[in-house]
Design a protein around this nucleic acid. Structure first.
Lengths: 146, 146
DNA sequence: TGGGCCATGTCAGGAGTTTGACATACGACG
DNA sequence: CGTCGTATGTCAAACTCCTGACATGGCCCA
């Protein structure tokens, strides 16, 4: 046997990462429900606000879901009149998507909830360590690849 | 309008957290598939190994899913002969669950893959900052509640 | 003793997400 | 010019997970 008992899985970085992410996800679900938005839908609106004209595949990568899932998300947003997809492709098969005025309004309302959560979460870490924390999270993601 | 443009949502802590967690999840899915385990199933085995006799509800909290989802997970593990649930309750309605020998063997095999991922991810952050990183992740989770 | 309260296990239904597959469109290269 | 490789959009099917709801069992306290 090993001379020292192995650290329990709940002590490992992956578990702690998952716990924090899970807590945030729960709170976002709660906060976004009154706005009629799911987390992927909100993420999509946010991405389109920052980079109008993104394609389905690009949005999927940005929201960390598959192209198929994003296709469903976009269909829902388009049915609700929050986004508008081009019918014809300008380049390749990619169909650029844009926010509608309704979409922008809905995003701004939902943003208050989400940003408040992010501020609350950010406040839990000492300010002097925030930059390092962001750096390390990015390094972890990069190390594990896309 | 605001005098300065607001930071894009992709620059916020929540997004970086999600990206890291999503990357880890993808890699765990890939690594566990050959072992015939899903991430929640693996997490459940790991929890039961550390704390034999946990109930369905306790496992659900530990694996960050609902009781209903954990119920399905346990059913799958029990059908595969990896865990064994008590038929009668010792205290309240809670039904203690234990690993079988097969379950322990399967866990140990899968553990190699998961631990390797955790080590790889951990190696991406400077050793002197690891303790702070864990502290901050825990503080974020605690601040957002359960 | 009895009622209010909370936790647990479970059923039913639906929503979201993924894997697998296929057709189309562009670019690089021989 | 033709072909391979890559990227995109979409369909189909299965799986996973969640919300909502209900019944049961223990605990606290009047």
């Amino acid at each position: 046997m090993a001379q020292h008992t192995t650290a329990p899985a709940t002590a490992m970085l992956g578990y702690r990462l998952k716990r924090a992410a899970s807590a945030l996800r729960s709170r976002m679900d709660e906060g976004l429900r009154p706005h009629g938005l799911t987390v992927p839908q909100y993420a999509t609106l946010e991405l389109l606000d920052a980079q109008p004209g993104l394609s389905n595949a690009e949005l999927a990568r940005g929201a960390f879901v598959t192209r198929q899932s994003m296709n469903v998300v976009l269909r829902g947003l388009a049915d609700g009149g929050l986004v508008r997809r081009a019918e014809v492709s300008e380049h390749g098969r990619a169909l650029p998507t844009h926010l509608t005025d309704d979409g922008r309004r809905r995003l701004e309302a939902a943003r208050d909830v989400v940003f408040a959560l992010d501020r609350q979460m950010t406040a839990a870490v000492p300010g002097r360590r925030l930059a390092d924390l962001l750096t390390d999270l990015d390094a972890m993601a990069a190390e594990l690849g896309r």
